[in-house]
Structure formats: C-alpha cells, structure tokens
Simulated scan of single mutants.
Amino acid sequence: MKITLDEIQAFVTVVDVSSITAAAQQLGQTVSAISRTLTRLEEKLQTTLLRRTTRRLELTEEGQAFLEKARDIIASVENTEEQMTDRSAQPAGRLRVDAATPIMLHVVVPLIAGYRARYPRIQLELNSTEGITDLLKRRTDVVLHIGPLKDSTLHSRRIGSSCVRVLASPSYLATRGTPRRLADLASHALLGFTQPESLNEWPLLDENKQPLHIRPSLRSSSGETLRHLALQGNGIVCLSDFMCCDDRKSGRLRQLLRRNTLEVRQPINAVYYRHTVIPARIASFIDYLIEHLPENGFDA
C-alpha cells in the first residue's frame, strides 16, 4: 500500500509543532485521526518514525531521514501546483514571510496594504522571529534578513541597505549631557543587544583604530525594544536607519558623535529556499519590496 500526501503532511506538521494535539488543530482534524494517520504511515513504511510518550515526541533516526524527504515532497507538490496554474492569472496561494520585529514593523507592514491590493489572491502570513529562521522547519517562504548571509543552500535578493548610527533622545541628553568625544561614552548609559555580541560593535573607532565594542548597561534581544528604551530616555543606542529614520527627522532621536561615525551600511536581503524556478507568489512579494523601498537606503 502506497503512502499518501495527507499522511506525509500530517507527519511533517506533527514534527513542526511538536504535538499531535496542536497538529490536529492546525490541520482541522481530531487528535485520534492524526494518531491513526501516523500509525498507518509507520505500518506502510514498516518502521518507527516517532517515539511517543505522554510528555514528548522524539524522531527516530529513520524518522529524521524520512522527514527530509517528506519536506522535499511537499515543497515539490506546492511548486508544481503553482506552475501548472493559469499563467495569465495573478499569483495566488499562501505566502509565509518571516522577519525580526523591527524589519516587520518598519519595512514590511507599511507596504502590506498596497501589496494586498495588487495581489488579492495571495494569502499572507507574517511571522516575527528574532533569531535565525529555519525556512524548511518553519515552512517559511521568505525571510527578510539584515546583515551578511552565510547559508549557501539558500538564495537571496538584496532589497535595500541601511546605515547604523549612535542615537539618544533629547530628554536623555538634557539630563545626562551630550557626549562630545568617544571617551565621554564611559560615563553614559549604553543600550545594547543580548546577542549576537557583534551587534554591540558601534561604528566608532576606539584608541586602537578598531570599531568600538561597548559593554551595555541595559540589554535586549530586540532592536525595537532598544529603540523604545532610547525614545523614553533610558540611554544611548546604536540602531539602523530603517527603524529610526523617522525618529531622527522628527527630532525624537538625535545622532551623536557624527564626525567620529564610520559609514557602516547593512544589506537587507530577501532570503528563500533555492528553487529551480522561483514561485510567482514569492517573486511577487520580493519584486514589490524592491519597487517600493528607497533605492539609496533608508537614510535618504
């Protein structure tokens, strides 16, 4: 007896959400139906894919090997369905986009109304992950990433760039004074990231002519949290223009040590799994971003 696509989909969903109950809710089925599907799949394959206990699910070695093939099968079916639709029709289907909260709020969200008006048949899902996103595991179509790329199994298109600057609010500067020299920062509250530590490297040269690595007195994993902390007068921060350009223009944040600041421009890329032919729904979104984002960077 041959395995079915529904059985493969049930297995992958259970693994992705780490729960038969959650998978049943996501797929609109009962828990018992999903459980029976998994059992039937294992019987057909004549192997155990998942070790199930009352507290957790764990992939067997055979299950891990099958999972990789199962993901390829699902991706292939989705791409085939899309390529076989009427080429004259607008792009359609579900599009899952992931980005860190600042990129989602300041880059993506302002463009969503226009994108949906142009492509009404696209069903958008917008998710925010602060760390590195596994496109296959999270079933994500496009990840917006700022900074250098490392994974060669993925494809990317540059959609923009953004400078980083040292900033503080007028209320903070009125209370603590304005630093005029690099050494003055030692007496100020510095806001930084919990991880990666490379984000605490500011575009200022230290006494050894190396980029200044700060020791934050207050840390956060989110750039958006740091932005709000700076706006509320909690300290000095180093953030990218794509999220703070309007704050600078309005005077809510002021750039510090301008003459000492190096031009550090971070690339912003749309990252997606390497397909032979990029699906139309993915291409439509990336093209729209490139069309509507500033050509010369967010500092323009």
Rank of each mutant, 00 (worst) to 15 (best):
82 E>F: 05
39 T>I: 12
193 F>D: 00
100 A>W: 02
86 D>P: 00
268 I>S: 09
202 W>G: 00
32 S>P: 13
99 A>E: 07
247 D>F: 02
158 R>E: 15
6 D>R: 15
28 G>D: 05
205 L>C: 07
108 V>H: 04
72 D>S: 14
283 A>C: 01
236 I>G: 03
4 T>H: 00
17 V>F: 05
258 R>M: 12
112 I>C: 07
72 D>L: 15
244 C>V: 15
242 F>C: 08
142 V>Q: 04
76 S>A: 11
175 T>M: 04
13 T>Q: 11
233 G>R: 02
96 R>A: 10
159 I>P: 08
225 T>Y: 05
182 L>S: 02
198 S>L: 03
37 T>N: 10
235 G>P: 00
249 K>I: 06
141 D>S: 07
267 P>S: 05
61 E>V: 07
28 G>C: 10
246 D>C: 10
54 T>V: 11
285 F>W: 06
276 T>H: 14
262 L>V: 01
148 P>A: 09
261 T>N: 01
86 D>V: 10
33 A>H: 10
104 M>H: 11
191 L>N: 08
221 S>D: 14
21 T>Q: 03
135 L>G: 06
65 A>W: 07
98 D>C: 15
207 E>L: 07
90 Q>M: 14
230 A>E: 07
250 S>T: 14
67 L>G: 01
189 A>C: 13
216 P>G: 12
124 L>P: 03
37 T>L: 12
115 Y>K: 02
104 M>F: 04
288 Y>L: 14
142 V>T: 01
196 P>E: 09
54 T>R: 15
45 L>N: 08
187 S>A: 13
37 T>G: 02
63 G>T: 04
108 V>L: 14
271 V>T: 05
229 L>A: 07
244 C>D: 03
16 D>H: 13
69 K>D: 09
75 A>L: 15
255 Q>W: 09
151 D>Q: 14
8 I>D: 03
180 R>Y: 00
184 D>R: 01
195 Q>R: 15
283 A>Q: 07
133 T>K: 05
191 L>T: 05
277 V>K: 12
193 F>T: 02
232 Q>A: 05
214 I>T: 01
14 V>R: 10
163 C>L: 13
283 A>S: 15
90 Q>E: 14
21 T>S: 07
211 P>F: 04
234 N>P: 00
65 A>R: 06
60 T>P: 08
171 S>P: 13
297 G>Y: 06
218 L>K: 05
249 K>M: 03
285 F>H: 02
260 N>K: 10
175 T>V: 13
268 I>R: 06
96 R>F: 04
262 L>R: 12
165 R>Y: 00
216 P>Q: 10
285 F>K: 00
72 D>R: 12
81 E>V: 12
155 H>S: 13
85 T>F: 05
185 L>M: 09
